[in-house]
Nucleic acid binder design. Structure first.
Lengths: 139, 139
DNA sequence: ATTATACTATACTAAAATATTATAGATCAT
DNA sequence: ATGATCTATAATATTTTAGTATAGTATAAT
């Protein structure tokens, strides 16, 4: 039940673009250097973020990527849901066809509620929140 | 970020024993049949549950397994934390040595809080709650 | 127009984690 | 003693994750 590097790197990728939101498109290469992640891998991870219209790209020299909307309007929950392929901890949460026991299983709704609790938290935090450091308890 | 079958099967295993708490030790074979899980796999999964003293076993014929305490006193959160090896979504949550960026990473505490939100929910639900069906919204 | 830069698309491979089975042995009620 | 049942360890198979490679396409700058 660990978060994949897709989600973790993807969040840092988005956060890097959030930091540079007012500097125009940023080269993935630059982000890769700053974040210590390979360009090739970032290129993979950014695809769904582009498709979901969280990111815009500009090709050619002086090109790069930039958030499609301000950091205040993008939550971590959206990013994670996208990169983890949904908000469920188990396949049966929103598709009971995957398991013959779905209709009688006492745990099915439990897992859905646990995931909901987690995403309620993630959905309440925007990239802007992360940048300015408030809203998260730094222990 | 899916739950492993260890956690899922383990919870159902514990739930089956909870249902039979007043019937004495239950053969794993019986549970395997009822739950549609191989005995061999259940034998694996029950090891940590025994070590953590949630389950007692009786060897020999007429032997079996039984909860070491009543279903009211065991939460799903405890089971999942045990079978998933901890309550964190990322390695760095409680061990910053695993990542050189841990001290400056804006996402580190985020993941910890997300996991905490999930476990707050799971810790609030006991096996008894699951059995009697209240406390979980069946949608 | 050409070129260099940067993004795009698809496919491939390697490594790790998960899931599952197998083998051999220990315990104990009967 | 026997056979049912749990126990321990190892082996294997499968799936997922992570990451790389190759061959492009678009475009700003010259």
């Amino acid at each position: 039940m660990k978060l994949s590097t897709r989600s973790r790197y993807g969040t840092r990728l988005m956060l890097d673009m959030a930091e540079n939101y007012n500097n125009g498109p940023i080269h993935l290469m630059k982000i890769a250097q700053r974040q210590g992640i390979s360009v090739k891998y970032l290129e993979q991870i950014i695809i769904p973020l582009k498709k979901a219209l969280y990111v815009k790209s500009v090709r050619g020299p002086k090109g790069g990527h930039i958030l499609a909307k301000p950091p205040e309007e993008i939550t971590v929950g959206e990013i994670v849901a996208l990169l983890e392929d949904g908000v469920s901890l188990v396949e049966c949460s929103y598709n009971e066809a995957v398991c013959g026991r779905a209709d009688i299983c006492p745990t099915r709704h439990l897992w859905r509620e646990a995931a909901q609790a987690m995403f309620a938290k993630l959905n309440s935090i925007t990239l802007a929140d992360l940048l300015n450091g408030t809203k998260i308890d730094n222990e």
